[in-house]
């Protein structure tokens, strides 16, 4: 839910001292609203995360350019719907192993917040049917398999002892397709089978 408006400088004014002003609009409400710290700015982006934090609303944004005494007309975005269009980050993944299994604990990603002091909202609270796609890769056999998980713990059983396995996880919401963002690949080795040492 980090929602940043980006734009390109006017072709004809590349290098000139152009400033920009941004406004945003909540669909279904009455008027355009100013974004205080995106008034007469020279950068070409504006973070509207706070203004679009209510993810069930839909929004428009617009920007205009000013150069000396000249002012462009407003350029407006299409209707933006955070609940449907946001990219959901990967969960936090914690792995623990023993000889023949790997325990995976997943923590849902948090909603983006501009101010660290703000209270944390888990994406699980926003998408109650949030699920995870867990991919597992056996380095030795070069075999990959994946599993769809609803709750936050998963135990991979019947693994080979003393073998390196890599795990990657994506969050997804059934029915609402959006580009996936997998977690960092994490690799762990299953423990030695103590009985094999005795033979």
């Amino acid at each position: 839910m980090k929602n940043v408006l980006h734009w390109n400088p006017p072709e004809s004014l590349r290098g000139a001292e152009v400033t920009y002003t941004v406004q945003y609009f909540i669909y279904g409400q009455k008027k355009w609203l100013n974004k205080a710290d995106c008034k007469n700015i020279s950068r070409t982006y504006c973070d509207l995360s706070d203004e679009t934090a209510d993810y069930e609303h839909q929004y428009y944004a617009k920007v205009k350019a000013m150069w000396k005494t000249n002012c462009s007309k407003w350029i407006e975005t299409g209707r933006f719907y955070p609940f449907l269009e946001t990219r959901i980050g990967p969960p936090e993944v914690a792995l623990t192993t023993d000889e023949k299994s790997i325990s995976i604990v997943l923590t849902a990603p948090d909603k983006w917040k501009t101010n660290p002091e703000d209270c944390t909202i888990s994406m699980q609270q926003i998408y109650s049917n949030l699920k995870y796609n867990v991919s597992v890769y056996n380095i030795k056999s070069k075999r990959t398999w994946s599993q769809c998980v609803t709750n936050h713990t998963l135990v991979l059983s019947w693994l080979e002892p003393n073998t390196l396995y890599c795990v990657q996880v994506e969050s997804f919401v059934p029915g609402l397709p959006r580009p996936a963002q997998p977690s960092q690949k994490q690799c762990v080795r299953t423990l030695e089978d103590p009985t094999s040492a005795l033979k």
Partner: peptide
């Protein structure tokens, strides 16, 4: 459901541009 969303996504811009009374939302909260 993804198929329905994809069907709408392809016409979203064309449709929403027709709607110039943005101060009204039918499926409101």
């Amino acid at each position: 459901l993804p198929r329905l969303l994809e069907a709408f996504r392809t016409v979203k811009e064309t449709m929403q541009i027709q709607d110039n009374i943005t101060s009204v939302r039918l499926l409101q909260r």
